[in-house]
């Protein structure tokens, strides 16, 4: 409600932009660090994480450190230091890069699920970040230039089909990239559709979940309230196939609530309050486990919950369902 013509974008937004343009990643990870989960290398069809899982693993595990820079948009001094710090290369890398952890492991588990279905799926050892922050923060000229670079990388590795894991990468690749890239011809598939198809034609069998626990699904905004394609029933179908006992939150489907993640980069203090409100809401259903299908939601809830076993990604559940 304030009127003041001298507002400036928060410094951390500008750092994010510069990092993406210079290093192809908001926190300055290299493409090979983003692709460190990938062992096999490229094929016609690849599983692509958008580098969101590695990124959110860092955001979650280094939360206290990042909070110094991102907690509030009026931070002045700290971001300047952060910029210097990020320029230091090896020292900075030592602090931020993280090649293990709950969130980090998800793409590898997803790849295993796809292989179990008998699919020929590769991945990129040099994986570019998908660019969602450039788009959402409004750097659309930069976004156009950036996604064309990403597209060239896909082309360089002969990629024809991409399977996505999370709502942001899916929405961007399927519906937004074509508006910014001439003659865009990648086929974009959603892992949920593939899993459901596999369950239907028998290539995938999962199940055997314990009936002792109750699960609640947290709809990610860019599935449940998408302007392009609403994905609400699909994750629930998968949960049913797993034989899970489920409950619904009073804010589910199209009325689901945000996890706070989108403002994490520059207003994490408020993002945290949003996450707390939503987490409280989900816990109040009496569920033992909260199921998510977006690494940003996962990181947001892990941060406020501090109990890693309380929140699970749907991919983790499918992966566990395989082993039984």
């Amino acid at each position: 409600m304030l009127m003041n013509s001298s507002y400036r974008l928060p410094e951390s937004i500008l750092i994010v932009r510069d990092n993406i343009l210079k290093k192809m990643h908001p926190l300055g990870l290299s493409t090979s660090e983003c692709g460190s989960w990938c062992i096999d290398g490229p094929k016609d069809t690849i599983l692509y994480s958008g580098c969101l899982y590695s990124t959110m693993e860092i955001v979650y595990s280094k939360e206290a450190l990042l909070h110094l820079v991102t907690s509030s948009p009026d931070k002045k001094l700290t971001p300047k230091l952060a910029r210097m710090f990020m320029g230091l290369g090896p020292l900075y890398k030592m602090v931020v890069s993280k090649k293990d952890g709950k969130i980090y492991e998800i793409p590898r588990k997803a790849l295993e699920v796809l292989k179990q279905m008998g699919m020929e799926v590769g991945c990129l050892k040099e994986e570019p970040y998908v660019g969602v922050l450039l788009y959402e923060l409004g750097f659309h000229n930069e976004f156009k230039e950036y996604v064309n670079r990403v597209y060239q990388l896909f082309k360089k590795y002969g990629v024809k089909r991409i399977i996505t894991l999370d709502p942001h990468t899916y929405e961007l690749l399927k519906y937004v990239y074509p508006k910014y890239i001439m003659d865009y011809d990648l086929e974009i598939l959603n892992i949920l559709d593939i899993v459901i198809q596999g369950l239907r034609d028998g290539r995938l069998t999962i199940g055997g979940a314990s009936k002792d626990l109750k699960y609640v699904f947290h709809d990610p905004c860019h599935y449940s309230k998408s302007r392009y394609r609403k994905i609400i029933e699909e994750p629930r179908k998968v949960m049913n196939s797993l034989g899970l006992r489920t409950v619904e939150s009073r804010k589910s489907g199209e009325t689901s609530m945000c996890c706070g993640g989108p403002i994490e980069t520059y207003f994490s203090m408020l993002a945290r309050r949003v996450a707390e409100a939503r987490y409280k809401d989900l816990v109040s259903t009496g569920a033992d486990k909260i199921v998510v299908t977006c690494p940003i939601c996962l990181s947001s809830f892990l941060t406020v919950s501090k109990d890693e076993s309380k929140i699970v990604d749907l991919i983790e559940l499918i992966y566990e369902g395989l082993e039984r």
Binding site: L2, M3, N4, S5, Y7, R8, L9, P10, I13, P73, E136, L137, C221, K225, S226, R227, E254, T255, S256, M257, C258, G260, P262, I263, Y266, F267, L270, V274
Partner: peptide, 28 residues
Amino acid sequence: HGVENLVPSLYTCLLDGRCVEACPIDID
């Protein structure tokens, strides 16, 4: 009032789309 005066709110929006679902005339 000029977009430059609304920067804080412009960057507080979560883009989660609950508003669109609520809107009777479906404003995006």
